[in-house]
Design a protein around this nucleic acid. Structure first.
Length: 366
DNA sequence: AAACCGGGGCC
DNA sequence: GGCCCAGGTTT
């Protein structure tokens, strides 16, 4: 695109943004820490989903020092239900690093930001531009879609080999005098006007510069590589009741759902597990001898790269001492205490089931 | 480069 | 049921 056209495009986009931008909570703050928290939460997560989490989080941890001093358990509880829990673990860890090694202030340089855990190309550029006014172009899902249509870019947006192409395009059109506003304008355009389906081209401020619009081929962009269908995994979980309490265990801090609490459970192959096999499983998972488990029901849940169908059993404790295999902690809790612990979605879905083992409505949703 | 990592809303 | 979302880390 020619220089003059680029200048007009930038001006039109910034004017639209100045007039139409959403007054989002994190835009009311110029505190780099607050902007950082919002950017981490907004990874792969919609604005509407983030808002209540953001407000609770900033209310509880108003400054980077309060976050750095907090227990990981408290941080995870505030993240419960938001997903991608490594974001919370990395944010907590990075807050500690910033407080210990940078005097509590985030570095302003994108390459230094990039070294902190949980900060990649996108968040480094977002913080450098929005919080510090540095000329770094952000490339997220919205920006890639806008660029693909604007330039009729044939590279697929979900092809990691094409990332550099989109970064170069984003850098080329960036308004280097107002990078923070320009980056946010690109993202908000993608979110509200240049949407994946049914884009609202008639009200687009940069319609005149959009090649796909001129060629009447907006629907053909962005291009995507085909994705695979995630496999289905079968799992069993068990509610072990002991008087008016039941057993929960904590996952290790690394990997899937790291640091979250759940009921004992495991994947299984084949069609179904017999109650006798299930009792053996319980012993392997917990070290406990229990009554013959009864099937309570089934829940399903989809993760990014697989789906789960989970049967929930219930039984009562008979004897034995807890011996965990892989998990890092356990608690016998009363249903009233369930809101103190961060559980993952599959466990929340089971919480509504009524048990026949002495505990009814074992799980109290928030 | 590909796999892994959540959850929700939309069509 | 597939697609998409203010992506980053690990292998």
């Amino acid at each position: 695109m020619e220089k003059q056209a680029l200048e007009k495009l930038r001006h039109a986009l910034l004017a639209w943004y100045a007039a139409e931008n959403r007054r989002l909570p994190w835009r009311q703050s110029s505190d780099p820490y607050a902007i950082w928290v919002s950017e981490i939460m907004l990874q792969q997560t919609r604005v509407e989903t983030v808002i209540p989490y953001y407000q609770r989080f900033l209310g509880r941890f108003p400054q980077i020092h309060t976050l750095a001093r907090a227990d990981l358990e408290t941080v995870l509880k505030l993240w419960e239900g938001l997903g991608y829990y490594a974001r919370a673990r990395n944010l907590h860890k990075a807050a500690g690093i910033v407080c210990r090694e940078h005097g509590g202030r985030l570095p302003e340089d994108p390459e230094q930001l990039r070294r902190l855990p949980g900060i990649g190309d996108y968040i480094a550029a977002a913080l450098a531009s929005i919080a510090f006014g540095r000329p770094a172009a952000v490339v997220d899902g919205n920006v890639k879609r806008v660029l693909a249509r604007l330039f009729m870019e044939k590279a697929a947006v979900n092809d990691s080999a094409a990332k550099q192409r989109f970064m170069r395009l984003a850098d080329e059109i960036l308004d280097r005098h107002n990078p923070g506003q320009f980056n946010q304008a690109m993202m908000e355009l993608g979110q509200r006007i240049c949407t994946p389906r049914n884009p609202v081209c008639p009200v687009c401020p940069i319609q005149a510069f959009c090649r796909a619009f001129q060629e009447q081929s907006v629907a053909d962009f962005p291009r995507r590589l085909p994705s695979k269908i995630p496999p289905l995994r079968k799992m069993v979980f068990v509610l072990i009741a002991r008087e008016d309490r039941f057993l929960i265990i904590r996952r290790p801090n690394q990997g899937l759902l790291g640091g979250l609490w759940e009921l004992p459970g495991q994947e299984f192959q084949g069609r179904k597990i017999s109650p006798e096999k299930m009792a053996e499983s319980v012993r392997g998972l917990t070290g406990l001898i229990v009554t013959t488990p009864k099937l309570l029901g089934n829940v399903r849940h989809a993760y990014t790269h697989f789906r789960v169908s989970a049967d929930l059993y219930c039984c009562r404790y008979l004897e034995g001492r807890i011996v965990l295999a892989g998990h890092t902690a356990y608690q016998w809790i009363h249903p009233d205490e369930s809101s103190r612990y961060a559980f993952h979605k599959l466990i929340h879905k089971m919480g509504g089931m009524v048990t026949e083992c002495g505990i009814t409505k074992f799980f109290i949703n928030r």
